[in-house]
């Protein structure tokens, strides 16, 4: 996924920075988006993460709030 940063204006955070970001923001003010496959989500995910596997993302964007900061992994 690293190549994406060169083609989109999205910033990159490592998991350490993401942990701090999530700790500093109430859960309802941010979206944590897990774009991996359901089996990976089931094994382990960031608490509160919404699962939308990458192949479904373009069809399901309406489920997310574009106004909220969105952390994608």
């Amino acid at each position: 996924m690293k190549w994406m940063q060169f083609f989109t204006p999205a910033k990159s955070l490592d998991f350490n920075e993401a942990e701090n970001y999530i700790a500093q923001h109430p859960g309802e003010q941010i979206t944590i988006l897990d774009v991996r496959q359901p089996s990976e989500y089931q094994d382990s995910h960031i608490p509160g993460a919404v699962l939308i596997p990458l192949p479904q993302l373009s069809d399901r964007l309406g489920e997310l709030d574009p106004e909220k900061p969105t952390l994608v992994y």
Binding site: M1, K2, M4, Q5, T8, P9, A10, K11, S12, L13, D14, F15, A18, Y21, L57, S58, L61, L64, P66, E67, K68, P69, T70, L71, V72, Y73
Partner: peptide, 14 residues
């Protein structure tokens, strides 16, 4: 994909 669809603050967690 998200940034192009109007999502204002998108962070890729690497």
């Amino acid at each position: 994909m998200l940034a192009g669809k109007g999502f204002k603050h998108v962070y890729n967690v690497s």
